[in-house]
């Protein structure tokens, strides 16, 4: 009996196991190997740690990495706050037309990253964009949305928040409506204001959901590529070139596969460290639940 179960268990996971070996383990090991070679697509020559040494002296790598960190650092709280805010509004007793509003907020989920990029590029075009048109109409000077690195970065953040709200909003709404009513009623008895209720009841109750949303958002933002490629293509200059685009450009456009793989490995280690930290925190969070 036990043995047949073992066989069945194996059958049940077989597909995923094979896929895991083919498309995760194999490329990961291959990546480690490539990162130790000079490989231009034709022949790989073993060069030891040279790629890593060069990488850590390469200002463009540092720039891509630090831009990615900055983007994650600002983008994750932004996504978190906007989606939580929207969810609270959508679960409040004091709002009407929730269903329509919910559909509107959810709509960006249907839009692909490429189109998100197009959309925001079109809104924030310097000469023909709607936003600059409005700014000029009310008497301001047009803002260099795409030729100034900081403004371009802001546009990327807007687009991120816009596109990221929908999914996280669903998760939050699910969590908020499952908070026991009695907790709020108790707060009412104590005469708590709406803000106090949010701070002392809602927020602590959705703690584990918050961790989940943050974890997902961090991974999503760290590997952002398609949306930015179509929005700014990493520009102006390399001001919005994030790490995955950097890896793509070095590895495919310039065909420096070894060097790009070394960058991949560094990114992997960073993500790994981050997840381990995150899981420690999340465990702490669950203990209180």
């Amino acid at each position: 009996m036990k043995d047949t179960n073992k066989k069945w268990a194996f059958i049940f996971v077989a597909a995923n196991l094979v896929l895991f070996l083919l498309f995760f383990a194999w490329p990961a090991l291959l990546g480690v190997y490539y990162s130790l070679t000079e490989y231009n697509g034709n022949v790989a020559t073993f060069i030891g740690l040279e790629n890593y040494i060069n990488l850590f002296q390469d200002p463009s790598f540092y720039k891509a990495m630090s831009r990615t960190f900055l983007y994650t650092l600002i983008g994750v709280p932004l996504v978190y706050i906007t989606s939580l805010f929207v969810s609270v509004m959508l679960t409040s007793n004091h709002t009407k037309g929730k269903n329509i509003a919910k559909i509107i907020f959810f709509f960006p989920w249907l839009v692909s990253p490429i189109v998100v990029g197009v959309l925001w590029r079109w809104m924030f075009g310097e000469s023909f964009g709607f936003v600059n048109f409005v700014i000029q109409a009310i008497g301001g000077n047009p803002i260099p949305w795409s030729s100034n690195g900081d403004f371009a970065f802001i546009v990327v953040l807007f687009a991120t928040a816009w596109a990221g709200t929908a999914f996280n909003m669903l998760i939050f709404i699910g969590a908020i409506i499952s908070i026991p009513r009695s907790l709020y009623e108790a707060a009412d008895v104590d005469g708590g204001s709406g803000w106090q209720k949010f701070w002392h009841v809602t927020l602590p109750s959705i703690r584990s959901t918050s961790f989940l949303v943050i974890l997902l958002a961090v991974f999503n933002l760290m590997k952002e590529f398609p949306m930015v490629q179509s929005l700014t293509n990493g520009g102006p200059g390399t001001d919005t070139t994030f790490i995955v685009q950097y890896i793509y450009e070095t590895g495919f456009d310039q065909m420096r596969v070894g060097y790009a793989s070394a960058a991949s490995m560094v990114l992997f280690v960073i993500l790994l460290v981050f997840s381990l930290l995150q899981f420690r925190f999340a465990k702490g969070g669950k203990a209180n639940e």
């Binding site: 995760f24 990546g31 590997k223 995955v244 790009a260 991949s264 990114l267 992997f268 993500l271």
Partner: peptide, 13 residues
């Protein structure tokens, strides 16, 4: 696998 998505290892993939 959630930590090392395809985006990160495009070249070996």
């Amino acid at each position: 696998t959630t930590m090392l998505p395809t985006e990160v290892i495009m070249n070996p993939t």
